[in-house]
Design a protein around this nucleic acid. Sequence first.
RNA 1: GCCCAUGUGGCGGAAUUGGUAGACGCAGCAGACUCAAAAUCUGCCAUUCGCAAGGGUGUGAAGGUUCGAUUCCUUUCGUGGGCACCA
Length: 1060
Amino acid sequence: MEYDFRKIEQDWQKKWKDNNVYAVSNESAKPKYYVLDMFPYPSGAGLHVGHPLGYIASDIYSRYKRLKGFNVLHPMGFDSFGLPAEQYALETGQHPATTTEKNIATFKAQLDKIGFCYDWEREVRTSDPGYYKWTQWIFLKLYDSYFDEKENKATPIVELIKSFEKEGSATHNSPLTTHTFTAEQWNAFTKKEQEDILMKRRLAFSKYGEVNWCEALGTVLANDEVVNGVSERGGHPVVKKKMRQWYLRITDYADRLLAGLETVDFSDSMKEMQRNWIGKSEGAEVTFKVVNRESSGVSAELTTHHSPLTVYTTRPDTIFGVDFMVVAPELDIINEITSETQKAAVDEYVAYVKSRSDVDRMAEKKITGCFTGAYAINPFDGKEIPVWISEYVLAGYGTGAIMAVPCGDERDFKFAQHFNIPITNIIGSHYTGEEANPTKEAILENSGFLNGLLMKDAIGVALNKIEELGIGKRKVNYRMRDAGFSRQRYWGEPFPIIWSDGIAIPLDAEELPLELPHVDTYGPGPEGEGPLANIKDWVDVGRNTPDGVFNTNTPQGVFLQEGRRETSTMPGYAGSSWYFLRYMDPNNANEFCDRKASDYWNQVDLYIGGTEHAVGHLLYSRMWTKVLYDLGLIGYDEPFKKLLNQGMITGVSEFIRQLIIDRDLIDSNKGFQRVLDFFVQGKQVSIKIPFGRGNNHIYVSQDVNFEFVLQTIDNSNSLSVVKSNYWEHHAKIKFINQSPEKSILNIDEWMQEEPVYENSVLICKNGYWLSGVYHDFEGNVINQKLEFLTRSVNEKMSKSKLNTHNPDDLVTKYGADTFRMYEMFLGPVETSKPWDTKGIEGVHRFLRKLWRLFNDDIKGPIWTTAPSSSLEENENSSKPGAAAPSPLEFPSEEKGRGEARGGEVATDAELKVLHRTIKKIEEDTERFSFNTAVSAFMICVNELADMKCNKKEVLEKLLILLTPYAPHIAEELWNQLVNSGSILDAEYPAFNAALLVESSKEYPVSINGKLRTNLTLALDIDQKQVEELVLQNEIVQKWLEGKDPKKIIFVKNKMINVVI
RNA sequence: GCCCAUGUGGCGGAAUUGGUAGACGCAGCAGACUCAAAAUCUGCCAUUCGCAAGGGUGUGAAGGUUCGAUUCCUUUCGUGGGCACCA
């Protein structure tokens, strides 16, 4: 009987579904285990082979735990709000809800084909109103809470209000509440004044923040929609703009997020990344007086005095080495301190910085800055320190200003060098003048009262002095900032907030969900608001009620006359911050999750997902969990007990390049010959380019040392085409081989990112890409040359890169079991690797070989073609090397299959193979080393096949081991063998160590660390006996050359090393 | 620029705590079976010198620690991912 995987998989998938075998109950006598995958965004491209990598791993582990007797929750759902669907809607007019629905159906069908053990009854979708009702509800909890610094936890804000009403700001003052007030004052404040103060304390709050603003598109852009300072779509300028936004006060949780890391099982690198993101540092804020000095004459005078400048530093010990100050260009204080003479330069520089994207500011190695004309006064020695502004200092961190110590800080050093600022050396010989040295081990020099102190000791001394003089104070700082929580977009959760007279009024819980209204267009609203702003009827509440009055009573009892809905929506991470809770109780209409359910399932025991979420999603969901815990809504404050990071499967992306030449240049240079010369690995290649035809562009690829030259006919003039004149597009390229010498480049598809270059001409278009075939000027097909016309690179799979690979084809061709095992066999789950299908045959062969252990003659060369049913019942192993018997002879000669499988007792050797495999598979599965587990299965099957072992006692246990990895074939063979029950609930075989006990061991013998021979020794041998035996060995004698060994190292069960 | 990861045959990878580098699979080569193909089976397969026995070299590179290093340390180069230039 052949291994008909298609039929087997289809049949069992149907049977499993019909029998509801994956349904999970919230009540069970078994211990619970919760395995969670990071749920996918249902992209239009469908599932690609990178998705299942983690899903297969979690599925294997879930099934393994089930066999081990656990009640396992292993759900799946969809992170179905997000920008791509909205972008697609903009382009095609299709509603995101429609396309999302369609995409989810595709995803589910694809997932089911791979045979995952999901309980689909528990599916969640973040864009489902039944789900986002509770996202909005939790948002309101955040809004209605503040962080009590004494209790170190989230607390309902009514408590704060009560306290304000009773005792003013006395008990609950915080740095965020800028002024203090008495109870009387509080009660006398207007509603607006009160709300403004409260807004500064809420965990979800609104304030002004900077966004990437694109005037031409009338919209706010995400960082990755901005390329080279212009919008990705259209190439329009992008500037920073202040707009009202919502934030989550995650910074209040910084310490607990740090402390919580100690309690969870994440990889060290993951914890490190989160720690770095949170970026706790201890230092001081120090205040410097600022003066101006007009540089009008030799006898320069200090003219004006300004408000002081406060800097944050972690190295107060270096305060005597401060040679200049740098202020972030965004800071308002700049206007105040800038001198008349420097004003123009400063304004210009500020404008320049405003035009720079964050990405640019990051990638730029160029040093820029501008002197303000102001000087700060060192409080210790009165030294005048020039105050500069530069984009390398960020407004959002610390005070937005630094004291620069060039001898100790690399960036400060480069800045000083670039602008010729004299450098003070305070660390003696530790500073070479060539580069900065950030040591803490130097003895301080030129440092006033700190002279002679070791730097790390001086930190405390300086801090004390600073506090003593009242010029500053100790300060703990976090680099993490509060999380932006609003997006000016459509396809997200609407905020359950109404604005009235500048006061945010939350909806009542009964009014949730606030459903996302239908829109006709997905373009931005006025003033950069989201598309929701265009729906007047929805936005303006209060006008539509019969009496013209909106009558929501807020918790504060405000009677609203008129209001305007918040038109932003929540970001992608809103829904994903708590979805693991909803799976526990997915259909609850009254609560986000029944407390009984969340207590039963408790934390996620194993969470599998990619490292790209290291700091975003993981920190947000950890924070939400802590808030829910603080408010008494769940019983634990870390969501994920263990995190396993799956590596990325990368795909090969190919590019074509679009060459853009300035139209004016071409028009005025009609003499240009249409030749493009370029050099690839030193070789010059020419392609003749026609122009003059409309719509001209050529697609070529980028390569190293690659340069285009347009030349005039007489070679007297040439035009170099520099890199910025290219536009590179992801593309799908096929080389069609027509003959060995000729291959034709065919572009199947390419991503046109619509660059708008109004003053450019695109050279050589479709006329010369006839039907996807590239022709040169004479109309000849260009063949071999095209190989280097494309560039390819391995990168993260995504639809927009056109490098995705779909699992369906492979599942159809080889079956789900093969596909599952192959993805695991590729390598460790944690490492990223390029996608390649060439090893899949080997895994498929393995499953067929396994199948033959049960269903075929072991050596059988031709039985797969013998269809007789009597054969199936009577086949058996023939002798190795013996010619295959003809079907007719077979039954009379050999034992029946059932007898052979059931009747014999397994030999010691066979049991040894089995138990070695049990041990290996169990260990490997436990440590998520699925690739080595697959290879252990292969070894086991190879060995059993060599022994011609087809005994039930051995095989049925092997099947159970295999079930998590290849459930379909395991279930099929299990039923052939045993005929009762499902293997999914079989009992995991116990490992018997006694079967593997050996009496001797073959030791490698090295001489001076180099392996020379082997010695088989008894297990209980001691050092002395070993030395004797080793010295007797003739190979050892040969290498000793008559000398005595210096030492003989014997490590029991490991090795022997003779040192000469 | 910063943070994290990673680098082993032609390829994917193995070596679990510092102890025989290259398990398992792919590809390749040789052979068996076959009219032939497919399927299956057997053998070889890091590199170099050698007929062989047996040596030399070898885990991105250079140093170091150790009886012994793919594994630990320092420096350095390449690649992938992330980023908010974090003082």
